[in-house]
Simulated scan of single mutants.
Amino acid sequence: MLRISFSRIAAGAVLALASHAAAAAPMAIDTANLLNGITDIYSATFDGALSPCTGSSPSYCAFFGGTPGAVRNITISPTPTGVANGVPGGFASAPAAGSFLNVTVDASHTMAALAGGTITFPTLSLTINGAALGAGSAVVVASGAGMVIDPAVQEGVLNADGQAEYLVNLAPATAADFSTLSQVVTSCTPSPGATLCGLLPILSLDMVRYRLFLDFDPTFTSFTGEFIGQTSNNSMIFATLDSTVVPVPAAGWLLLPAAGAIAARARRRRS
Rank of each mutant, 00 (worst) to 15 (best):
residue 1 M to D: 14
residue 3 R to E: 13
residue 4 I to N: 10
residue 6 F to K: 09
residue 7 S to H: 07
residue 7 S to M: 11
residue 11 A to I: 12
residue 12 G to E: 09
residue 14 V to S: 13
residue 15 L to G: 09
residue 16 A to P: 00
residue 16 A to D: 10
residue 17 L to Q: 08
residue 17 L to R: 03
residue 18 A to Q: 13
residue 24 A to W: 08
residue 28 A to Q: 12
residue 34 L to C: 00
residue 34 L to W: 06
residue 35 L to H: 12
residue 36 N to E: 03
residue 39 T to F: 03
residue 41 I to R: 00
residue 50 L to I: 06
residue 51 S to I: 04
residue 56 S to Q: 11
residue 58 P to T: 11
residue 58 P to V: 14
residue 63 F to T: 04
residue 63 F to E: 10
residue 68 P to E: 00
residue 72 R to G: 04
residue 74 I to H: 02
residue 74 I to Y: 06
residue 75 T to H: 04
residue 80 P to F: 09
residue 85 N to D: 15
residue 86 G to T: 03
residue 87 V to E: 03
residue 90 G to N: 07
residue 90 G to D: 08
residue 90 G to T: 12
residue 90 G to Q: 06
residue 92 A to S: 15
residue 93 S to W: 01
residue 96 A to R: 04
residue 98 G to W: 02
residue 106 D to L: 05
residue 107 A to G: 01
residue 112 A to L: 00
residue 113 A to Y: 01
residue 115 A to C: 00
residue 118 T to K: 04
residue 119 I to W: 00
residue 120 T to D: 02
residue 122 P to H: 12
residue 123 T to W: 06
residue 125 S to W: 07
residue 126 L to N: 05
residue 127 T to C: 02
residue 129 N to R: 05
residue 132 A to E: 13
residue 133 L to W: 09
residue 135 A to N: 03
residue 135 A to I: 08
residue 138 A to H: 05
residue 138 A to K: 02
residue 138 A to I: 12
residue 139 V to K: 11
residue 140 V to M: 15
residue 145 A to C: 14
residue 145 A to K: 02
residue 147 M to N: 09
residue 148 V to N: 04
residue 149 I to G: 05
residue 151 P to F: 05
residue 152 A to R: 12
residue 154 Q to W: 02
residue 155 E to S: 11
residue 156 G to C: 10
residue 158 L to S: 01
residue 160 A to S: 13
residue 164 A to T: 00
residue 164 A to Q: 05
residue 168 V to F: 06
residue 169 N to R: 12
residue 173 A to K: 09
residue 173 A to T: 09
residue 178 F to H: 12
residue 178 F to M: 13
residue 179 S to V: 09
residue 183 Q to M: 14
residue 183 Q to G: 10
residue 185 V to G: 04
residue 195 T to C: 07
residue 197 C to F: 03
residue 202 I to R: 11
residue 203 L to I: 13
residue 203 L to H: 05
residue 213 F to N: 02
residue 215 D to P: 03
residue 221 T to C: 07
residue 226 E to T: 15
residue 226 E to D: 13
residue 228 I to L: 15
residue 228 I to Y: 02
residue 232 S to K: 13
residue 238 F to T: 01
residue 240 T to V: 12
residue 243 S to V: 02
residue 243 S to C: 01
residue 244 T to F: 02
residue 246 V to Q: 07
residue 257 P to T: 11
residue 257 P to G: 04
residue 261 A to I: 14
residue 264 A to Q: 08
residue 269 R to Q: 11
